[in-house]
Amino acid sequence: MQTVFQKPSALTDAPMHYCPGCTHGIVHRLVAQALEELGVEGRAVGVASVGCSVMCYDYFTCDMVQAPHGRAQAVATGLKRAKPENIIFTYQGDGDLAAIGTAETVHAATRGENITVIFINNAIYGMTGGQMAPTSLPGQITQTTPYGRDTNSAGYPVKVCEMLSTLDGVALAQRVTVNNVKNVNIARKAIKKAFQNQLDGKGYSIVEVLSTCPTNWGLSPIEALGWLEENMLPYYPLGVYKDVEGGVKK
């Protein structure tokens, strides 16, 4: 029998704890696939952040470190500076990367830290049960914005790729999504490139993946994909925000 599709070797057999319809699973696969295709799983070290993906250390076969909330890119900096030959990536949600960890994110980026950042933006806090995220949309109803996100009081969403693309240390900032096959393929290439950049010593590379959270959005998986398309894509346009061909390292 011919194998036409299989799980990447860089994923363990542990059953994932993610909710049905959550797109973490797809992104995990794309990350694992990149590690496998580039042949770097044996020298990769992933940094799990706090949030729904906190236990991703059980899902990737490479060495893993679990970081304090928001500190993934500081931990990644330590890992990379200690062993520059290793391939270091962080896997972070919107609360971790763009709220409590904003300083760590901005400064890892501005240093041009030669790491790969996978950023899951699903516009909500999943792990704690659906509170407002820094990326929740204006008017979005969450547990802590029961009347909708009021921008007068709660302010506006953080547009991470737009913000980081202003920094000289960033080699790659690209926003993708995984709502259909075409976009999954674009995301796959972007994630692989973010790792390839690190291998090439180009500097800080971030891929923002617009994701769904059916459970906390209160929608079915199919409806959630629709909500993402109707609400998130207009606010967070997909695309390459920055791509420095020669990298940012002199």
């Binding site: 970081a67 931990v75 330590g78 500076r81 300083a103």
Partner: peptide, 26 residues
């Protein structure tokens, strides 16, 4: 060696965490 002036004491100690996790004296 590595000298890195972090953006905060919080970041600095977490860089130590990362470097120590990689097995070096930090």
């Amino acid at each position: 060696g590595t000298y890195l002036q972090a953006e905060s004491e919080i970041a600095a100690v977490n860089m130590v965490l990362g470097a120590s996790a990689a097995g070096v004296r930090a």
